[in-house]
Computed example of a mutant assay.
Amino acid sequence: MTQVTFGGKPVTLVENEVNVGDQAPAFTVVDQNLNDVTFDDFTGQVTLISVIPSVDTGVCDAQTRRFNEEAAKLDGVRVITISADLPFAQSRWCAAAGIEHLQVVSDHRDLSFGNTYGVHMKELRLLARSIFVIDRSGKVTYKEIVPEVSSHPNYEKAIEAAKSAK
């Protein structure tokens, strides 16, 4: 199991651990209009999933803005950001940040994604910073769980993985 810290203190990741080569497990999150978004909505597409604790923090803000910029250039790749923020907060933040090339969804309801992908930080009820790339066949081809939640992921490796997953 991956070891993760938040502010230097260890946190517990609960539920499953998904690894490269695994079939991507199903999950249900909600969009900013409170509509369900499921894994099936991404079937047949290369998908880069950017996971953040909260859009209202500096690193999460930077990560989401970076992947929004990259999404405009990643032809044939769907990019989504998932956090446990309320959809209303996500909507407000996206409008202020001009997010238009990726979809931001919420796992606040039951942490379906966080538990299924093994990135739910038990002590905080937030998601650990991570990246998953899923190919057209539904297989996980890239995974990064950032060891210290306040650090940035490896953007270049994630983008290359998404381009290669086509």
Rank of each mutant, 00 (worst) to 15 (best):
T2E: 07
T5E: 10
G7R: 14
G7F: 10
G8M: 08
L13H: 12
E15I: 08
E17N: 13
E17K: 13
V18M: 14
V18T: 15
Q23M: 14
P25G: 12
A26T: 15
A26M: 14
A26F: 15
T28N: 01
D31W: 06
N33Y: 02
D36Y: 07
D41F: 05
D41P: 09
F42C: 06
T43F: 04
Q45I: 15
Q45H: 07
T47A: 03
T47G: 03
I49R: 01
S50L: 03
V51I: 05
I52E: 05
P53D: 06
V55T: 12
V55K: 14
V55M: 08
D56N: 13
D56R: 10
T57G: 08
T57S: 12
G58H: 13
G58K: 15
G58V: 12
V59F: 05
C60T: 12
A62S: 04
A62N: 00
Q63N: 05
Q63Y: 04
R66N: 04
R66E: 12
F67E: 02
F67D: 05
E69I: 15
A71S: 13
A72D: 01
A72P: 01
G76V: 00
V77W: 03
I80Y: 02
T81A: 13
D85V: 09
D85C: 07
S91P: 09
S91Y: 09
I99S: 01
I99D: 02
V105I: 08
D110G: 11
L111D: 00
S112Y: 02
S112H: 04
F113N: 00
N115C: 02
G118R: 15
M121D: 01
M121F: 00
E123R: 11
L124S: 10
L124P: 04
L126Q: 11
L127R: 13
F132K: 03
V133F: 07
S137Y: 11
K139A: 13
V140E: 10
T141N: 14
K143M: 14
K143Q: 11
K143P: 10
K143I: 05
E144Q: 15
V146R: 01
P147N: 03
P147V: 00
V149C: 14
H152S: 15
E156H: 03
A158W: 07
I159S: 12
I159R: 12
E160P: 01
A162E: 05
A162R: 06
S164N: 15
A165L: 11
K166H: 15
K166Y: 13
